[in-house]
Design a protein around this nucleic acid. Sequence first.
RNA 1: UGCCCCAUGGUGUAAUGGUAGCACACCGGUUUUUGGUACCGUUUGUCAAGGUUCGAGUCCUUGUGGGGCAACCA
Length: 567
Amino acid sequence: MSEHSVQQPADNSDGKPSESIHFIEQIIQDDLKNSRHQHIHTRFPPEPNGYLHIGHAKAICLSFGLAEKYEGLVNLRFDDTNPEKESQEYVDAIRRDVTWLGYKWSGGEFYTSDYFEQLYGFAVRLIEKGLAYVDHQSAEDIAKGKGTPTKPGTASPHRSRSVEENLQLFDEMRQGIHPDGHCVLRAKIDMAHANMHMRDPLIYRIKRAHHQRTGDKWCVYPMYDFAHGQSDSLEEITHSLCTLEFEVHRPLYEWFIAALEIFPSRQIEFARLNLDHTVMSKRKLLKLVEDGVVDGWDDPRMPTISGLRRRGFTPQSIRTFCDRVGIAKRENVIDFSLLEWALRDHLNRVAHRTMAVLDPIKLVVVNFPEGQTEMLPSVNNPENPEDGSREMPFSKTLWMERDDFKIESNKKWFRLAPGKTVRLKSAYIVRYVDHVTGDDGRTKEVHVEYFPDSKSGSDTSGIKAKGTLHWVNAATAIDAEVRLYDRLFSDPTPDGHADKDFSEFLNPNSLEIREGCKLEPALASASADHPVQFTRLGYFALDAERTEQAGHMVWNRSVTLKDGWKG
RNA sequence: UGCCCCAUGGUGUAAUGGUAGCACACCGGUUUUUGGUACCGUUUGUCAAGGUUCGAGUCCUUGUGGGGCAACCA
């Protein structure tokens, strides 16, 4: 059990839980205590019209997590009632992402399209009760008739058709006798209702579109309000959790349950997740993909689950993040740094430390014997000694990071510079001797002398070095490409500006590709499943797909190490 | 000029009428062969005004501010 698992209420003598719970858990605990339900049953109902993002992860952790915690069931249900926008590709991606997060849909996998026949029957039942009618008005007239939030709507001229006529017309709709958009089925509720959704909402429309699952069997499809809640009911979902924008739909949700006399699922809304410096709507993410701004839905800069996965995030880190974000009803914008913290927190404990130089310059150990190679052990993870150590080759010619050398420095500079002495991680202490400047005016080589008695682990030199540098043996280095990422948008809330399009805030420097990076030889056997730390640089993940395409290793920087240096 | 929801440090989130706490971020310190980690510490908060109460972040009223609602989308 990890320290991140939710603590069960302690068995206190006074019976009080030792941990606070959010409002949805309170409802569940009350329902269980009052025997309103013997067990709970939740669901996650994505529309397969895009990839899942971190906001969905919050919803997934909520509904799946609650089912697990209270030993209930959870369904995965694809809300596929709009064939024009949905596809099997998205269904597959959603299943993959939920599975990757570590969840199983214990209650089963469902599709709203499986209920089309029953939904149709529900509509007939409504008509028979005089609670629905076929409207032949144009879309514009229907919209006009709805009024505005401040002005009541007006009744459709077809509102008082007889039950028989409505039954026949609705049957004709199904038979395909009428063209697309010719008429719709509407619930008969209240055109003057203060809630716009109660002003005779449309519940069925004619749309000749090939559905990825039902093919061409249907030419009428139910609208969200006449599909979602009914599906919840059919699956006997006890707690139907959704985001705030559906709050105004709840009266309708309940009206249909009452009118149809079906299982009373309960809808509860919570605030969706917003992350700063990114966008979280499928429409906007799709636009980034279509415009080629990013590499696809799984671009490592995307807030999608697949993007985060490729970036190197672990399922555990995302679950920790969702846990820390909390559940409430107020609008929120989470700091990106919380996500980064969650990843570091996990990877610090499990990732092996390795050495890589991203902007290499030569480091020559002038007094080290030419042609000799010494194997030096280096601990894989100081946070977890059980992970052992590996042997690193060390010789006269090494690579060091360009940033680790400066010609002019001061007392706060712990790295190499004229007059400075540093430790090479897991190797020796070296002292500056000289440096070589290239034709371009940049430093090309740094020459140092090493102290043979300062060997890591058996240092008897007595020399103190404030700084420790990472390095890679030149002769055995692996050449690789490393991709560094920054936030996709420079503005914290790119879609929060009424007068400007979110794309105006794209960060032009969100991707930096480094070629010719030098990796220690042990990294040859790295796999995408095991993120590593490049010592002093951050956590990195092998991009298996790009590596295969490029013919050389391609690494993605998942997150930098926290940098405490105020130089 | 309608209806619904919301309001606690910079950002999130607790406190269920009784000491405003936790996390992230920030800043400072200790330790350190990663300027990482770990540990310690500082600063910062109940939108406003009334009311109820011995006692209000919590209950009531009125404001103010924010969000949502008028797709044959979900």
